[in-house]
Amino acid sequence: MSSWKGKQTTGAFIPPLRNPATGSANPAASLSSLWAYITPALDHIVKSSANNTAKAPAIDVDFYAGVHSACYNYITSQTETYNTSSRHDIPMSGMDLYDQIDRYFADAARELLLGAPQEDSNLIHYIIPCFNRYSVGAQSANRLLNYVNRHYVKRAVDEDKGWLTISDALEHVAKTAKLTDAREQLAKKLREKRADELRKWGDIEANPEALMEAEACAEAASPVDRIVHISALAHRRFRLEVIEPLLAVPKFKKKGTKKIPKSKGTGPPPGPKGRLARAVKELLESSEIEEEERTRLASELATMLRKVGVRPDHPLRKKLSKNPISA
């Protein structure tokens, strides 16, 4: 995937990945056997050399059903142990598989960062198609591993481990609650807090799709200890492993420290910028790129930052939203 560059939306057809022969082995016997069974499917969906940024490569129907059944059988067996045990140190069923999926996307995202070009001028042309390809792979993996979402993620959210917890909303409730408030009124204030957070990510009143998209962005923006759907998990890892390192401002060593140039006129001095900020500045000010292409790149970059959970008040998101070509 590190060779992608430019506006690539289609590629050579890649046939569906067939179900591997497992013999008499049971893929659901252990996490290691389950992961060995799932990994080829994830690699095909997420890491294959296809440059189609609109649709991830498919897997054979039998393989698809096999992955679903293996996840179901593995988590079901864990659930029985979890529900019947009196021990408190047994993890929730599905947690180990979820953590393994998280590590997989972290590794996949880091591979993309390692493939990034050294020249700032080429960075945006590289990162946008990379993200688009990675994102369609994440959405395909989300469907493939839907039983993990339905069982583990839903249960974790019900146990207050999701992107927005009760403790996150307590400050809002404390400021607005009255001693005379009934349970229903407190629940309403919690819903108001959730709606306020989601409005930061989109027009949630527009339609159900907009609400779902806003929640996916909010999930991607959450800390790593919050349990989120697999597609949001993948987008969160892209933010943590790719975007945040590219946004990081370089640190100068004490010895031979470069002086920050003084400001000409009023305003703060122009401090050092991260690679992505420099690339955006170069894009927006470039006279060598046609306006239509600059508009497309700026718009897609703004969409990417939103999807991976870069918050609306981040300077780069504000810069892209204020720029007329990215409206």
Rank of each mutant, 00 (worst) to 15 (best):
K188P: 01
E291H: 08
K262I: 01
D99F: 06
A248E: 14
N323H: 15
V67G: 07
A232D: 13
A36W: 01
S321P: 00
S30A: 07
D181Y: 15
L320N: 00
S263R: 14
P117W: 02
Y64P: 01
V224D: 13
Y126L: 15
V61A: 14
T165M: 12
P250E: 11
I59T: 09
E119P: 03
T81R: 14
V67A: 07
R311Q: 12
T10A: 03
A218Q: 04
A327I: 06
A279Y: 00
Y37K: 00
A187I: 01
G267Y: 13
N132P: 00
E300M: 15
L144S: 08
S3F: 09
L246H: 03
R87W: 14
A65I: 04
A56T: 08
A206H: 09
S299R: 09
L31V: 05
L42N: 04
E285S: 12
N83H: 10
Q100V: 13
R110I: 07
T9R: 13
P250L: 13
A106D: 10
R143V: 08
V173M: 15
P15L: 15
S69T: 14
R237S: 12
F238Q: 05
G94M: 07
A141G: 15
D102M: 01
W163M: 11
H125C: 01
Y152H: 07
I90Y: 12
S93M: 06
P245Y: 12
K319W: 12
H229W: 02
K178N: 13
R296G: 02
S69C: 07
D168Q: 13
N73I: 03
P57I: 06
A108D: 09
A12E: 06
L113Q: 13
R199P: 00
L247F: 06
M212I: 04
